[in-house]
Write a protein that binds this DNA or RNA. Sequence first.
RNA 1: GGAGAGAUGGCCGAGAGGCUGAAGGCGCUGGUUUGCUAAACCAGUGUACGUCACAAGCGUACCGGGGGUUCGAAUCCCCCUCUCUCCGCCA
Length: 425
Amino acid sequence: MLDLRAVTDRLEETQRRLALRGDVPALGKLSELGGRRRAWIRESEDLRHEVKSSGPRVQALMKSDPPAAAALRERLKAASVRQKELEASLKELEIELAQALLYVPNLPHESVPAGTSSADNPVVRTWGERPAPGFQPKPHWELGEALGILDFERGAKLSGSRFTVLVGQGARLERALISFMLDVHTREHGYTEILPPYLVLRESMQGTGQLPKFEEDAFKTVDPELFLVPTAEVPVTNLHRDEILEAGALPLRYTAHTPCFRREAGAAGRDTRGLIRQHQFNKVELVEFAAPESSYQELEKLTGHAEDILRRLGLPYRVVSLCGGDLGFSAAKTYDLEVWMPGLDTFREISSCSNFEDFQARRARIRFRRGEGSKPEWVHTLNGSGLAVGRTLAALLEVGQQADGSVLIPEALRPYTGFERIGPR
RNA sequence: GGAGAGAUGGCCGAGAGGCUGAAGGCGCUGGUUUGCUAAACCAGUGUACGUCACAAGCGUACCGGGGGUUCGAAUCCCCCUCUCUCCGCCA
């Protein structure tokens, strides 16, 4: 959520920066409502001041001059009624205002490149050699089915499209990846492991920006209404909702594995095969709370921590910087990590690392204090996938495939899998 | 799911219609005193919004949340939420 004051005081600048995203939201209404809000607050407070400060006079007059007291009380009654009406209107206005503000996306950082789609995302760097196997590499779903470790048919039988069953070494590989990633982040990158609830309140979804605008993307329960987390970002960022963090607590780094549940409402017909786009998938997430002045430095570090996983697994990838048109609703700046998928002959997003600046902090009211007695300030929140586990498994199959159809497991993962190869020797 | 108890400032804890942002204590910060530390004493110590230079000052609100009564409510009435205890059930 943007700061109302900043929006109304610097309307043109806000509009111009938002335009980088492509669609320009109409902020005129916002500034008009903001102006009316100020006027009403002033009027209401003046009235209330009159009513409240007249108390002693009423008491005195009741003893000395009862008729005058009655007259005064009548006047005050009228003022009180008017004040309450004003307050009620003001409340409605503020709800309307807050609601409008919740639909305005974050301002892109000045370093965000111009552009309208993912085709415009500049490549920042690449890592690793693409394998040249000397045979036609297969997509991961063919490999997985042939090896008996991915069962798409039964997944669909159980739960419909975009659900998959992992079997035997496939299930073990998924579990190994989760443990491996969590171990690296906790032991070597300094993150604290969190195991959060997978169902959260509407309030939490709003805090990170999934709601109210993107409700059709979320799964939810009916009674009581709870949302299945679309990413661990939601519960972990909301860990500190409505809190003022202690001086010196920053940066706070958390990592969490959760399943992620997504409706994929707008993606009908896309990536229908394989593990790329599932309604349920595992992800290890990195979440960070940082001081404003260091958040961009921290974004580079966090992105590096996600990259480290890919490197250790020997998966070639590239880093792109999302252009204005491709930037997510809440993000001020985002790097996507794209892993090379030989079977698909393309790079696919496997991690998205973003700085949200104070956008989520405002929505979720997360603040920090620089020292004893200093005023609370909004923290900056960041997060990144470290990594999407299902897609990592898919990439591992495609990159590790051998001529005989077996798949080699990278060295770093073998202590976790307990095997070094899937399939015929 | 049933029965009961409770929700006040960073913490503990008063308060029972008016001048209470809220006694008292603890903690914290600054100062005085002081070989050092400690103790003692003095002062200060919430958040949000409005005005304004997002300063100072001033104003308004906030005693779990919402609504009501009243000239006026932390204090009276209604609804809700959460926490704790006991019973039931369960992994």
